[in-house]
Design a protein around this nucleic acid. Sequence first.
DNA 1: AGTATGACTCATT
DNA 2: AAATGAGCCATAC
Length: 124
Amino acid sequence: MKKSSENKLPVAGAAKNYSFFNDVWDVVRQVPKGRVTTYGAIANYLGTTSSARMVGWAMNASFTMKPKVPAQRVINRNGMLSGKIHFGTPTLMQELLEKEGIKVENDTVVDFKNLFWDPAIELQ
DNA sequence: AGTATGACTCATT
DNA sequence: AAATGAGCCATAC
């Protein structure tokens, strides 16, 4: 069995819970283009429903991950782009979403309810 | 080592 | 319906 060098993460202190972060990224990468999901949905799928905040931290760490994680498809339960401030520019997240065909108005995904992709249901 | 903060969410008021 | 408190737990200082 290989040591942690293979599973090493750029996140300090994540070694203990690296699987959680890894699972988050794995799920996010499977979000179809043009669809979105939420922190809570991912947390629920991973069995840590009340730890949606950790999903946010995983997203923050995802910027240094390869292959890249479509973090713009992960938003909060209101369909709002709560994490856009963590992108390079204040509008980058919205631009990425619109490039995928998702309409964004006032930092909120239009028709979010219809575009919502729940891993606990879709991914099973 | 203790406190504060946060890309969240739910329950209560 | 809007505001507030609480649970969550890793990171930052």
